[in-house]
Every structure is written in C-alpha cells, then in structure tokens.
Simulated scan of single mutants.
Amino acid sequence: MVILYWLLVVLMVVGVIGAIVPGIPGSSLILIAVVIWGAIDGFTTVYWALGIAILVFLLSIGIDYLAAYWGAKRSGASNWSQIGAIVGLVVATLGLLPALPFGGPLLGILLGPLLGAAIGEFLYRRELEIGLRLKQAFQAGVGIIVGSIVGRLIQGVLAIAAVGVFLWQTLPHVVGGY
C-alpha cells in the first residue's frame, strides 16, 4: 500500500508539471490521485485534500480562459485574435506546424497561439496601414501569450498547494502506520 501511495504522489508531481506545461494534464491528475487514495483509504484522511483538489481543478479550468482573455484585453486584441490563438493552439497541438529544429511540440504550443493571434488581428485591422497592423497584431499575440503564461503559473501554485495539503493530511498516516 505504501508503494501505491508513492506512485500516486509521483502522479501528482506529474500533475504539477502539467499545470504549468501546456499539453500535459495538470490538476485533473492530482484530483484522480486523491480520489484513488481516498477510495483505498476509505476517504478517512483525504477530506480536505479532496475538497482542495476539486477546487483547484475547477479554478484551473476558469483560469485557462480568464488569463488568456485578460492578456488579450490588456493588449487591445480583438475577438479575431482570440479565435486565431485558439486555431493556432489546435494546429500546434495536432502537430500541423512544421517540425521545429529545437523545442519541439512545447515550443509549437507557445508559437501556435502567438502566430494565430497575430494573423487574426492582422486580418481584423484592415483599415490600418501595414506598419500599424503588424504592430497591433504582434501586441495582440504577445498579450495572449503573456496572459496564458501568467495563468499557467497561477495553476502551478494552486497545484503545488493541492499536493501539499494531500501530503500534510496523509503522510503521517502512511509513514506512522496509523
């Protein structure tokens, strides 16, 4: 049972990494690990950890959308750039971007939304001259990426807190054997 506990802790660490790195499940892995341990332990030692894991999971979903939206609005981006960022993310996730010489898919997941947002904003701002269109398109792309990075960092902190609560609640029972 102790081995399973530590395997679930490793799964939670992968969840913390996934909360920060796009493309890897994050808070959902933490929640799954807490539920598995709770099912094994009879939910006697995970009541706080389960509540925190559910809260972190729900907040993470909202943070993903709100952080990108906040970054877009702070940079003056239009809805076109937000749609472009989503399309760019999907294209990068599916691997349709050309293979990059370094960074691989993780760099593609950052470049996809940046390029998608910039292209979307460039197409939307037809009334501006080329120089201003390019500047606005670049600002929109950077704003969305900065918002997404800030959101990922917040999710990472929340994921660490959820794992910390789990360890605080369960580790004395596993190590102490009571």
Rank of each mutant, 00 (worst) to 15 (best):
I3V: 15
W6E: 03
L7S: 08
V10G: 12
V14C: 03
V16P: 08
I17A: 15
G18I: 06
P22C: 07
I32E: 06
A33I: 11
I36M: 11
G38C: 07
I40M: 10
G42D: 02
F43I: 05
T45I: 10
Y47L: 14
Y47D: 11
I52C: 09
I54K: 05
V56S: 13
L58H: 03
L59E: 04
Y65Q: 09
Y65F: 15
L66D: 00
A67L: 01
W70H: 01
W70D: 01
G71K: 01
A72G: 14
S75I: 02
A77F: 07
W80C: 01
G88Q: 05
A92Q: 08
T93G: 15
G95M: 07
G103I: 08
G108M: 08
P113K: 02
L114I: 12
L115A: 15
Y124F: 15
E129Q: 11
E129G: 09
L132Y: 12
L132G: 01
K135A: 13
K135F: 08
A137R: 07
G143C: 04
I145F: 10
S148Q: 10
G151D: 10
G151E: 12
I154K: 01
Q155V: 09
G156C: 07
T170M: 13
V174R: 05
V174L: 11
G176K: 08
